[in-house]
Design a protein around this nucleic acid. Structure first.
Lengths: 337, 337
DNA sequence: TTGAAAGCGCTAACAG
DNA sequence: CTGTTAGCGCTTTCAA
């Protein structure tokens, strides 16, 4: 069995009886070529099943690869999956392909992935930063004109384009929704660590809504958790208080699972809930879950668009693009306080 | 502002005053090198921020790139996101990176992605095939020892390693669960097109369960839909029959949204439901949703393991790995018929 | 309209 | 222990 080597440009050239450069010219529609040569070259290409080697192509220019390197905390999280889909949609037209990896929210893994991507000469680097990660080491690459885009959370130690949700305003709107329905004691169940950007922004929105309504901020109404089980416990503790909250704001989709599990388990029909981030079956829950919906696909698309503009030479100041969230009232926020 | 070119091996060599090969040797721990040289090279590497160019490295050997090309129908679907996470986990240790793209279940887009991946010299190609896609053109590449793994669905026109869920047995178990609770008229709501592999397997499991119980197969109890809205309509139609089904089997997670929306909307408490594929809030629904859970992470991991074995020279026959589904009774399947 | 030569960044093969 | 040469597959000069 022969080792079936892939045909190269030279193979095609030999087959046709022209130089490699001529084949290259025909294929890239670079420079002129006679219709006759053209036809014969394309013929041979088809016959041999020739596929140009993109690696070689990139190395030639010493230039970047035609990929977008994307680092997210977790590929399995549909939020990031949708973001990735949006990016792909936006950059496909430019011939860019997605190179992806999960950091598991570990700064070291994130760093390792970024290094791999850089070594692969990605044309664009997009990162949803892990808590505690530092990105100052990317300065040199940005100087070398490689676009860097931070997603969902800003980077640290590097000013670069950033695409985030309107976490603060969205949460504020959600809490205001509850206040408007008479709620005065509103619990907040957020994720950990508390210094996570999205967590900080969302709690800021929570506090802003309270402040605007002239309500005091009660620290004891704020709970934290790592996962659904923890969120369920936190919810149970809050609801067991002497003066329990009459409404809860769930800080993200993972927390929501725990919060709703506990509300449902305890059969408390007297507690209103608003959740940050939409979830598939929200409308079917009883009561239907009111959410502050994000738009991950749009986030990805915008990130892709910005990156392309940068690749095309846009040298303007780094932008922070805020993608609007949308309050979707479905019932669970309607319970009067 | 200088164009800040990335430092190359030659730059490092010049800095230290040795040859490029020596630097290469130190970095790859290939051949011997004096501790002194070693130190000075590593020093310069750090000082210059040198990162080896992986593209050049690959092209050198003429060998494959260190990537796994993965084509899925939809990046935003958490099922495929989790599969991707499993693959990454399994291949990271081998230094492989994921190159991903969505086909949107369009054979042409799938084909275009595959061509791009091949042009990039991926070391492994993994595909969740779109309906109607043909993969016979990959034969040459397999002959050239590039592992091909089909995910979730088998490929067409090419025998290759394949990782799928136990669709048939799982569905059979789910339907048997309903039959055991007295149900005799069980509706099936599946996706389209009906020739989709997973759809065919699941309906086969449905029929097998009926047959085993000596129940007739009633075509009119089978409905199809493209999306949640269609599934909701189909459900409504089924439930509006003169002799409505007393139980429903939902063919996948997208259908489930529509099915449950309609069951919930119509306040029918007299219909049992079992859904293929788990969904995040299943346990909180009322009644809690009984599911036939898949294990997408395991599917990805197994695909990764097989691919690595192939890369390491395993030339044995193509395998089909079936990942067991698991019936998770949560209540919605308990309603007696 | 076409070709020859050189080189992208790296490493295998052979010296020294 | 270290250097030189050659070449991966392609494209960019520069000539013909």
């Amino acid at each position: 069995m022969t080792a079936t080597r892939r045909p190269t440009l030279a193979d095609v050239a030999r087959e046709v009886g022209v130089s490699a450069k001529t084949v290259s010219r025909v294929l890239n529609e670079d420079g002129p070529s006679s219709p006759e040569t053209r036809r014969r070259v394309l013929d041979a290409v088809a016959r041999l099943g020739f596929q140009p080697n993109l690696m070689a192509k990139s190395i030639r220019v010493g230039g970047p690869d035609t990929t977008v390197g994307l680092v997210v905390p977790d590929l399995g999280n549909p939020f990031f999956g949708s973001v990735a889909g949006g990016i792909e949609e936006a950059v496909r037209g430019r011939g860019l392909t997605l190179l992806m990896g999960s950091s598991d929210d570990d700064p070291e893994r994130e760093h390792a992935l970024i290094r791999t991507f850089l070594a692969r000469q990605v044309s664009v680097l997009m990162v949803a930063p892990a808590v505690g990660a530092d990105h100052s080491h990317l300065k040199a690459h940005r100087a070398a004109r490689m676009p860097v885009v931070f997603l969902d959370r800003p980077g640290n130690g590097l000013t670069a384009d950033t695409v985030v949700s309107s976490n603060r305003a969205g949460t504020q709107e959600g809490v205001a929704h509850l206040i408007a329905r008479g709620h005065r004691r509103i619990g907040f169940i957020g994720d950990l660590p508390t210094r996570l950007y999205t967590r900080r922004e969302r709690i800021a929105g929570y506090r802003a809504a309270l402040a605007e309504a002239g309500l005091p901020y009660d620290r004891t109404l704020v709970a934290d958790a790592h996962d659904p089980a923890g969120a369920a416990e936190a919810t149970a503790r809050l609801l067991a208080r002497a003066a329990p909250p009459t409404a809860l704001l769930s800080g993200n989709n993972v927390m929501t699972i725990g919060v709703m599990t506990e509300v449902s388990r305890s059969r408390r029909k007297d507690v209103a809930v608003v959740a940050f981030d939409d979830v598939p079956m929200a409308a079917i829950l009883d009561p239907a879950l009111t959410v502050i919906a994000q738009n991950p696909v749009a986030m990805g698309e915008l990130a892709g668009v910005v990156a392309i503009e940068r690749l095309e030479g846009d040298r303007s100041r780094a932008r922070t693009i805020m993608v609007e969230t949308r309050l979707v009232p479905r019932g669970s926020g309607e319970l009067p306080g």
